[in-house]
Amino acid sequence: MKMKLSGKILPLIALTTLAGCMSTGPHLKSSVSEGVAGIEARLPYANYSNYFGYVDKSVVPEGKYKGKDTYYLYVWVPAAVDEIGVSMISPAVATPGDEDFVHANFKPGMDKDANKFFDTYIVLDRMNIIDSNSIADGGKVLQNLGRNDDSSELPANPSGASYNSLLRKTTSMNNPTEALVRGVYRIGFTSFRSSVEGSFEATIGTNVPGVKIAASLSELDALVNNKL
């Protein structure tokens, strides 16, 4: 997918109560929860990066997952993290901010058919790229870190079904292969209930700033290494 990108990191959401946390802020929350007055709520990540895209016939699939056409997003995480959260909602329910990562197809697609959506399925992989200067050289997938099809934590799609996707991966201090280190991660997305067509909103949650998202390694290299 070819596109022009911009990027931002959203600030930590100020929460006055856990009840407020349950009804405000990003839909994607961390695995950490706290309880006050009998209310248990997941806490937000310190930093969020959002990506808004639109898949139509002009966007060519980049791979296959279990026989289904699959599209990729590439994520640069600049430091070791305790947890990575990923969610994908279709159709997009928010409006991109000036510094969000936005696919060039997003606005034309929304202008044409803002209601088009697909049932999301996401896969998170770790790649063998740990040096930002090596992003342009490419790499390969080292390890699958998780997958998700349906999540009731996210808004239902227009059909009323909880078919949007959310996954969390926590680091392991005891197993180096499960440690979430600095480097490039890949999000694959497809659908097993429909074709992949329509808008989507992907969100990455971490507790470090500086996360970048692009639809190719060359674009990620340009973002991370200030080549835009």
Results as ranks from 00 to 15, higher is better:
residue 166 L to F: 07
residue 133 N to P: 03
residue 172 S to Q: 10
residue 165 S to Y: 05
residue 171 T to P: 04
residue 168 R to F: 09
residue 146 G to T: 03
residue 159 S to E: 12
residue 150 D to Q: 09
residue 141 V to N: 08
residue 157 N to P: 02
residue 167 L to G: 03
residue 161 A to L: 14
residue 155 P to V: 10
residue 158 P to Y: 07
residue 140 K to T: 14
residue 170 T to P: 03
residue 144 N to R: 11
residue 161 A to I: 13
residue 161 A to N: 14
residue 146 G to H: 04
residue 172 S to I: 11
residue 152 S to Q: 11
residue 155 P to N: 05
residue 143 Q to R: 15
residue 135 I to V: 08
residue 134 S to D: 14
residue 144 N to Y: 00
residue 144 N to G: 14
residue 166 L to N: 03
residue 145 L to G: 01
residue 141 V to M: 03
residue 167 L to I: 12
residue 142 L to D: 12
residue 165 S to G: 06
residue 136 A to E: 12
residue 142 L to E: 13
residue 135 I to H: 03
residue 136 A to F: 09
residue 149 D to H: 11
residue 167 L to Y: 04
residue 133 N to C: 08
residue 173 M to V: 12
residue 139 G to R: 02
residue 142 L to F: 03
residue 141 V to E: 08
residue 173 M to A: 14
residue 167 L to F: 04
residue 137 D to V: 07
residue 144 N to T: 09
residue 149 D to M: 08
residue 145 L to Y: 05
residue 134 S to W: 05
residue 159 S to C: 01
residue 140 K to C: 03
residue 141 V to G: 02
residue 150 D to M: 08
residue 159 S to G: 15
residue 167 L to R: 05
residue 164 N to P: 10
residue 173 M to G: 15
residue 136 A to I: 15
residue 153 E to I: 00
residue 144 N to F: 01
residue 152 S to E: 11
residue 139 G to E: 00
residue 146 G to Q: 04
residue 162 S to Q: 08
